[in-house]
Structure formats: C-alpha cells, structure tokens
Design a protein around this nucleic acid. Structure first.
Lengths: 344, 344
DNA sequence: GTTAGCACTCCAGGCGCTCGAGTGCTAAAC
DNA sequence: GTTTAGCACTCGAGCGCCTGGAGTGCTAAC
C-alpha cells in the first residue's frame, strides 16, 4: 500500500502531467503548495513509486510519467469527485432546456456538447427502444409485394421497417392485419414483440386473413426491429488530433478509423449497468485503444438503463473533470428523457 | 497555348506526382516510354511551364510539382476519361445488387464504397425527397398537446415530424384532420406541401374542425418537412490522414473538423446540376479546403437531380480514376433509385 | 527521516559537413 | 534552329558532433 505522502505525490504528478503533457520532475513538484518536502525527498519517493510500477520514466534523465497502474490507482483511490464548476453546470443545464422533439436530435446534441466540454471525443449509444411500449402499428402497402411497417412507441419514437412478401396482398387483408396487430400489440414492449406476435397472432390470423403466409412474412420482418443495433452518435472525433500523443498521424489514424466503423463501436464500448466505468489503456479490449482511456456511464428511463454515454481520449485525461461532466450529463439526460416520455 | 510536347510533359509530371507524392525531376521523366527526348530538353520545357505557372518548384534543386493551374489545365484539356478497370466496375455493380430497402442505407453504403475505392473521403448528399409525392399522412396524438405526423412518399420514404399545439385536440378532430389531409394531399409533391395546405385546406378545416387553430398549428409544423436540410453521409474521413500532405496533424485537423459540422457541408459542397464538377484548391470557397480538391456529380431520379456524391482529397489526386468512379457510381445510383422507385 | 550537494545521464537543438538529386547554362552536335 | 551532353552550382536531407539544461541517484550531513 502507498503511504499518504506517496499518494499525495502520485496525485500531484498525475494532475500536473494531465495539464502539461510532459514528464514531471521533482523540482517542479516541489513548487506545489501542498507539497512541503524538498526535491530530494520527492526523488526518493518517486524512485519507490516507479519501482512499484505506478510511474515510468521515458528515459534516464527525464521526469516521471504516470503508468496505467498509476492512473488506475488514482481513479480508484485518490480521486474525490468534487462539485463541477458552476459555469459548466449552467451550460449543461441550458442544453436540455431547448426544444428537442426527437430522441435522435437529443443524442446528437449530447455528443456534441460532451465533446466540446471535454475537448475529447464523445460517444452516445442508444437509447434502446426495446423496453418502450408500442402505441400503434401502421402498415402501408407500396405495391409489388412491398410495404412499410411503421411502429410508434409510447414516448413518440418512430421505427420503420420495410417488408416484402411473395405477392400482392389484398387491401382487405392488409386492413385486417393492421387491425389485428393493433389489437394485440398495443402496450407490448418492443422487446416482447416477437413472442407476442407468434403466440397470440398466428391463430387469429389464420382465421381472418386470406393470404396467411404473407401475413406471417410481414410479422417476421417487423420482428427485426427489436434486434436492431443501438444507434451511435459521435462528436468531436477530430479533437483526437489536438492531443499531443496523437500528433503522430500513424497513432491517430487507427483510432479515427475505428470510430468510423459504426457498428463495431457497441462491441468494445464498456457498458456497465451502473455508475461510471473507466477503462484505462490495455483494459480496453481493442488493440486500437491500448493508449486510450474510455470513460462511460449509463442513462436511464424509468429506472432502466436505456443507453450509454462516454468520452474517449488518451490515457492522459482529466479524469476528474470528465467523470464529473459525464455523471452530470447522464443525470440530466435521464431527467430529460423522463420528462420527454411522461409528456409524450 | 501549350505545345503538344509541353502537354505531354505536363501530363506525365502530374501522373507521376499523383503516384509518388514527390517532386518529379527531368531524369525520372525521361525514363517514360512515351517521352523520347533527353533530360536536358525536358528541363527546358519544364522551365517554360514553370514560367507560365503550370508548375512550381518547392526549392531550387528539387523537381517540379504541378500548380493548381497545372491541374486545372490537365483536367480541362489533357484528361481523356477512358474506361474504368473491369474489376472496379464489377465491384461497383455488385454493391447495387444487395437488398437495400431504405434510401438511407443506400446512401451510407455508397459513401463507404466510394471512400474505399478512391482511398479518399467520400460525401453523399441527399437524396432530396422534395419532388416525391405523398402517399399517405398519418397523425398520431401523443397527449399533452403533442403528436407525430408521419409522411410516407410514393417511393416508400418515411418522414416524421413532431408537432405541438396549445391544448388537447379532440379525437374526432384528429380523425377529421387526417382524413381531410389525406384527401387533399395525396399525390402532391412534398415541395408543394405548404402551398397546397394553405390554399386548399383552410376553408375545409374551418368548416369541419372544432379547434381550428390547433389544426393550423399542426399544418404549420408539417410544412417544415420540405425545408429540411439534405441528409449528409461521409465515408472514410480517416483516409485523409493517410495522404502525405496531411501527415502534419495541423493540416488535417481543420479539414476533419469541417467535415464534422454536418450542416455546413451542403454550403460548400459544389452542386453542379450536370456532369462532373471539379474544384481545385482555391477554387473551393472554404479556407479549410485551399489545398484540397473536391470532385462531385449528381444523381437523379426521374431525370431530375435529387442528390450529389463527391470525393474530397488533396489536390494531388488521381483525377482520372476518381472521375471515372464518380461517374459510374452516379449512373448506378440513378439506376438503382429508378428501380427502387418504380417497384415501390 | 530529511535534505543539500554533487557527479552523472540523457535528450533537444544548433552547427557543420557531406552526399545526392536536380537544376540552369553553355557549347557542341544534329 | 533544335536537341543534347557536360558541367558547375544549389539546396535540402541526413549524419555526427557538441553543448546546455533538466533531471536523476547517491552520499554525507543535519
């Protein structure tokens, strides 16, 4: 375990390094107000900290740089999440007072604001609409064996899905199908869609619809909706380039390229159910992120996690500030969605 | 005017420079098969070409680099758009044989494929849905003075818009409104929506609907649909970083940052109505693109331009190949949309 | 346990050198 | 007159050298 003094020094090194982006020497540290000992003492402690793996030295006559283990210890034990500065709080609050009718717009806005405030790359996942209940289904035939199914949820979210079937359906059949669907399916959560449709509808439809197979085909494609990938919104990917660690294009390119593969993001994105998750360097599953930190958290609707927000940057990151901002934003977004859903 | 020999040399320099990304010297040029004169002759011609502004020299003892004027002359006079290589053609064709039900999916796919094939950044705008005709309008009340209007066009495109009004509307009124809307508006192009609604509906609604103001509020918000920005899809923005001219992060960042401002893109994106448009360097209106070339073209639906595709990269770009690919893709996309619309 | 002092290490950056690629010019060849 | 060979010249990239400064580890004194 680290002595209080070692913890103090580790803290100071990390906080300085996050600001300066350059190795921190003993002399510089000694200038801190809260550090009352001489450079020599600091040097001794630094040597110990390095031996224990919390610090590294880029080369013999340079200052010290926090290792991943160092950051980890800092995040786990040293960080005291204080109050966020008023200004940022006010600003964040103001963002959610705008009129935003569509969830998509909200998510985009959050991604932008997060990236602005942190000067890093922000990622917003979701919200999942799985748990939302269906309000209405509409089926619009396009002719030529195609149709669009439109699903509206309680909160006013709209999903559309194109369906195909082998032949023309009779207008009567379509009407019947829509009526039956709406009878059975309104109030059912999207995630339950498949089960409900199969268990409750088959019999009914077989009786009432002439072209039974087509009706089933329609159902089948409608059932793809709950299996869709979560939507992904990215803000400030170019902020990556402003970080000194990515001044070398070769370092930055794989990461930006990773961010372009939208559908892979939800695979490596840490999705803790609760609280704030911090993945430092090699803790990330993906090779491209070995020198990055991803901090994420959840936002909720009706107490249930429905999506995630996160910030991506170099391991040299202002953990304190980013965690404060994420935590605040998550709460604000949760509140917003709650208002949104209840008024909708 | 340039002599044929000067044109030959300019061509060769550009084509070599596009491949090598390094200044081209007289010796290297003389190795070309189609160039039959000695380095000394080439040097003389080069000096002339430089004097006329078609070439520049990074420094006194370096080779020559094409200037913007040089590229412009090349594109206008020297480029003979030949046949695209079979392989690329086949690949592009295969892309459009996939099942793609939603225009959005098609656009995304095109952006990705274009960026892959050109190894540059690809941009897809649109398609505009302005000229599409309405097939159906649905109005789904959400309670609390909110509702969703769902507009389905002939081709199966779905637009949704959230509307608010001062108070509850009666269920009867909603029903009436929907019925009247559908009566009057089916078959009308989206771009004519506002005009049609105002000229044909006011009177009718005043007679039939109880809460006239609310109905008007709904119409008003529905009318925002045709005024929406065109959708923007970007593929391969990170390819930018692979170009040697953007190995300096400071050069690349402003461009990537520009690409992130989605709504500004349609302002600087060249939108020729016809043929292929090439904007070289300072021909671009935006400062960020002073060292870039943007090549764009149109795709159509029913003979009318409905959107644009383009490729963005450094001025040192394989104009020939990119123009071939864009031209082919534009045609393929036009064909696809035509099939899409006629079957839908 | 802490600190002052000192010798040591190592990198960044400036300087000078060389090498090679490429030029422009001149004069000879065609 | 046009083309080409030859040559002197220029310039930057790359390498080695040096120096200054920042930072360390160690030792000895407090």
């Amino acid at each position: 375990m680290l002595t209080p003094r070692q913890q103090l020094i580790l803290s100071a090194i990390i906080e300085d390094y996050v600001r300066m982006a350059e190795p921190i020497g003993s002399r510089a540290l000694a200038k801190h107000e809260e550090i009352q000992f001489s450079p020599a003492t600091i040097r001794n402690e630094m040597a110990d900290l390095e031996e224990m793996g919390y610090l590294t030295q880029p080369h013999a006559s340079a200052g010290r740089v926090p290792s991943q283990k160092g950051y980890r210890f800092y995040v786990d034990n040293l960080l005291r999440l204080g109050q966020m500065d008023r200004e940022t709080g006010e600003f964040l609050k103001s963002v959610f007072t705008k009129r935003m009718d569509e969830v998509e717009q909200v998510a985009r806005e959050v991604a932008n604001v997060l990236s602005m405030l942190t000067k890093q790359t922000a990622i917003v996942l979701g919200p999942k609409t799985d748990t939302e209940k269906l309000r209405k289904i509409e089926l619009i035939p396009l002719g030529g064996g195609r149709a669009i199914a439109i699903l509206v949820t309680n909160s006013g979210h709209v999903e559309t899905v194109h369906v195909r079937f082998s032949s023309e359906m009779e207008a009567d059949d379509v009407e019947t199908l829509v009526r039956v669907l709406n009878d059975k399916v309104v109030g059912v959560p999207i995630s339950e869609l498949r089960r409900t449709l199969y268990s409750e509808l088959s019999a009914e439809l077989r009786r009432t619809v002439e072209r039974f197979e087509d009706a089933i085909a329609v159902l089948n494609e409608v059932c793809h909706v709950p299996e869709r990938e979560e939507a992904v919104y990215i803000g400030g990917a170019s902020n990556m380039l402003a970080q000194p660690e990515f001044h070398d294009v070769g370092k930055a390119q794989p990461i930006l390229s990773l961010l372009e593969q939208n559908d892979s993001i939800s695979h490596w994105f840490p999705k803790a159910e609760d609280g704030i998750e911090v993945r430092i360097g090699a803790e990330n599953a993906v090779v491209e992120l070995q020198d990055c930190t991803v901090i994420t958290t959840t936002y909720r609707l009706g107490g249930v996690p429905v999506g995630h927000i996160g910030v991506l940057g170099p391991t040299r990151m202002d953990y304190n500030r980013v965690m404060q901002i994420l935590s605040f934003t998550s709460q604000a977004l949760t509140d917003f969605l709650t208002r949104f859903a209840s008024s909708g």
